[in-house]
Simulated assay, not measured.
Amino acid sequence: MHVRKEKETPGPGASPRRSGHAERSAQSRAALLESAARGLSRHGYGNLVLEQVARSAGYTRGALYHQFKDKQDLTLAALEWVLATWEQEVGVLVEREREPVAALLAMARGHAVFCRRDIARMAMALRLELGGQDHPVGRAVEAAYDSLVTDCRRLVEAGRAAGAIPPGPPADTLALAFVGALEGAVAALAGRAPHDELLAERVAFGVLGLHPDLPHRTKDRA
Rank of each mutant, 00 (worst) to 15 (best):
L130G: 03
G168C: 03
Q133H: 07
V141S: 10
V179G: 01
P167Y: 05
A187M: 08
L148P: 04
A158Y: 00
S147Q: 15
P169L: 11
P169Y: 01
A177H: 03
A190I: 05
R139G: 10
A175E: 01
R153A: 13
T173G: 04
A143H: 08
D146P: 06
G159I: 06
P170T: 08
R127W: 13
A188Y: 12
L148G: 05
A175G: 00
H135L: 10
P136C: 11
A188F: 10
R160F: 03
R153P: 02
P170F: 03
A164S: 14
A188K: 09
R139P: 07
S147I: 08
P169I: 01
A190G: 07
D151F: 09
G184H: 14
T150A: 11
V149W: 02
L155Q: 10
A181D: 14
P136R: 09
G131R: 03
T150Q: 15
L148E: 10
A175W: 01
L128G: 15
A185H: 10
P167C: 12
A140N: 08
A140E: 15
G131N: 04
A125P: 08
G138K: 06
L182D: 07
R160Y: 04
V179P: 06
S147R: 14
S147Y: 05
D146Q: 12
L155P: 01
V137D: 05
G138V: 07
L176H: 09
C152F: 10
I165Y: 00
C152A: 12
G191E: 09
A140Y: 07
P136W: 07
L176F: 04
V179R: 02
Q133R: 15
R139A: 15
A161K: 13
L155K: 02
A143P: 07
A177R: 08
E183F: 04
D134V: 10
L126Y: 03
I165C: 01
A175Y: 00
A185V: 14
V149R: 13
A181T: 10
E142R: 11
E129F: 09
E183Q: 14
D151H: 13
E183A: 10
P167F: 03
D151I: 04
A161H: 09
A187P: 00
G132I: 05
D172S: 11
P170L: 04
L176K: 05
V141A: 14
D146E: 13
L176M: 08
G191D: 14
R127A: 12
D146A: 13
D134P: 06
L126S: 04
E142S: 15
V141G: 05
A188G: 11
V137W: 11
I165S: 00
E183G: 08
D172W: 07
G159C: 14
G168S: 10
A144I: 15
A140S: 12
R160V: 02
T173H: 03
A177T: 01
V179C: 02
V137L: 11
V149T: 14
G184R: 15
G159H: 00
V186A: 09
V186L: 04
P166C: 05
I165N: 01
R127S: 12
H135P: 03
